[in-house]
Amino acid sequence: MKQLLVALIAGSLFGAGLAFSGMADPARVQGFLDLFGRWDPTLAFVMGGAMTPMAIAWIIQRRLEKPFAGEQFSLPGTTLIDRKLTIGAVLFGTGWGISGLCPGPGFADLAINPLPALAFVAALLAGMIAHRVTS
C-alpha cells in the first residue's frame, strides 16, 4: 500500500509539473526543437531546473540502505552505447519531434487533450509490444 501511495504522489507531482511548466503542450516542445524558426528555450529551463532536485536525490539515495517504499533499490546498470540503444534513441527523438510528446506528457494529455493523446499513447503501446515481440 505504501508503494502505491508513493507512486500516486510522485505521479501527481510529475503531472502537475508538466502542466504547470507547459511541457504537456506539444507546440512548446516542437518550438524548442525548431532551432531555425521561432525557437522556444522554455524546455531547456525545465530540464535545467529538473537537474538540481535530481542531483540531490542521487546524493540522498547513496546514503540510504533501502528506499522509503521498498525493500531494495532497483537501479539500472551502466552499459555501453550499442546498436539497440542508438536505434531506440533515434526512434524516440523522431517520435518526440513529430508529435511534440514523450511518454510523460503523452499520458498527462489524456486528461487535457484526449483525442490526439490517445493516438500517441496507442502508438507508444504498439511500439512497446513490437519491441517485446521482437526482442
Rank of each mutant, 00 (worst) to 15 (best):
M1S: 12
M1K: 12
M1F: 09
Q3L: 15
L4G: 10
V6N: 01
V6Q: 02
V6R: 00
L8C: 09
A10W: 04
F14H: 04
A16H: 08
G17P: 03
F20S: 10
G22S: 07
D25V: 10
D25F: 03
A27I: 05
A27C: 05
R28I: 14
R28T: 14
R28H: 08
V29T: 08
Q30D: 02
G31L: 05
L35D: 13
R38S: 13
R38L: 06
W39Q: 13
W39F: 15
T42I: 14
V46Y: 02
G49P: 07
G49I: 11
T52C: 10
T52W: 15
T52K: 08
P53Y: 10
M54P: 03
A55Q: 09
A55S: 14
I56A: 11
A57S: 11
I59W: 12
I59L: 14
Q61P: 01
R62H: 07
R63S: 12
L64E: 05
E65T: 09
E65M: 07
E65Q: 10
K66V: 08
P67A: 05
P67D: 04
P67S: 04
G70R: 02
S74V: 14
S74P: 06
S74L: 12
L75M: 13
P76H: 09
P76I: 07
G77V: 09
T78P: 00
T79K: 11
R83E: 15
L85G: 00
L85S: 05
L85H: 01
T86A: 15
G88T: 07
G93W: 07
G93P: 04
T94R: 02
W96I: 04
W96P: 00
I98S: 02
I98E: 02
I98R: 03
L101E: 00
C102Y: 06
P103M: 09
G104A: 13
P105W: 00
P105A: 08
F107G: 01
D109E: 12
D109W: 01
L110H: 03
L110D: 02
N113T: 07
P114N: 05
A117D: 01
A117K: 01
L118P: 00
L118C: 10
F120D: 01
F120E: 00
F120W: 03
A122S: 13
A122F: 08
G127V: 06
G127R: 05
G127P: 07
I129Y: 15
I129N: 10
A130Y: 15
H131P: 00
R132Q: 15
R132E: 15
